[in-house]
Write a protein that binds this DNA or RNA. Structure first.
Length: 214
DNA sequence: ATCCCGAGGG
DNA sequence: CCCTCTGGAT
């Protein structure tokens, strides 16, 4: 089985199982998604979705957030990971959006990464989900699942993974592929104990094939 | 004890 | 490259 055949098998499988995969973060505007993704670092989407309704009621726009204090932001997100860092990041992010980007969310990955709290992964999510760009966001799930399947056998870090995946998936497949790999990691290919019994990808999965042959 | 849609700083 | 931030679920 060549690498190309492996990618084709996997695309076919996911296309049928998840024809229209989407993020599980709740949002209604680009601003809301940006906030939600920043909050999602090392935190489950479910927990983020527990705090964002109140957060967006209090801070519905970039302008309102920019006027809020770090302390008030902290109080609204205190139940998720790293509230100290994230409240400072969100506050600084709103300031920079007003000052340097006219209050609009930029579509360029490099510009997005200039924002406090926005790294490569978050920037790629916004570029892909909001602006439909072929940006491959690599989080913990994408990194792990890609490696196990054998899509990125030599990747040593998320950036390696991103480059390899972008090279092999067709451009129009990338936004879906991002969500496919995340959702597969979240509901089947668990970090601790992957549920290979319920997985239809075992015929092409390096992790499964290696572990079952011993 | 380990993991969750990471980012920033040294 | 490494470390720190640091809450809640399993």
């Amino acid at each position: 089985m060549t690498k190309k055949q492996k990618y084709e098998f996997i695309v076919k499988y996911f296309s049928e199982k998840m024809p229209d995969p989407k993020t599980e973060l709740k949002y209604t505007t680009p601003y809301e998604l940006l906030v939600a993704v920043v909050l999602s670092a090392q935190c489950t989407d479910k927990r983020v979705n527990m705090v964002t309704p109140n957060f967006f009621k209090r801070f519905p726009t970039v302008d309102t957030l920019a006027e809020g204090s770090i302390e008030e932001i902290f109080d609204l997100i205190r139940s998720i990971s790293y509230p100290n860092n994230k409240s400072k990041h969100l506050h600084g992010m709103a300031q920079m959006l007003l000052k340097s980007f006219n209050g609009e969310i930029p579509s360029d990955v490099d510009e997005l990464q200039m924002l406090p709290g926005v790294g490569r992964k978050t920037a790629n999510v916004i570029a892909s989900v909001i602006f439909n760009k072929p940006a491959m966001a690599v989080d913990t799930h994408v990194f792990r699942v890609s490696k196990r399947l054998g899509l990125t056998p030599n990747a040593k870090n998320p950036l390696d993974t991103e480059r390899e995946l972008v090279k092999h998936f067709k451009e129009e497949q990338i936004p879906n592929a991002h969500h496919w790999l995340i959702l597969h990691g979240r509901y089947t290919c668990f970090a601790r104990k992957p549920n290979c019994k319920e997985c239809g990808l075992t015929p092409v999965c390096s992790y499964y094939l290696d572990s079952s042959s011993m």
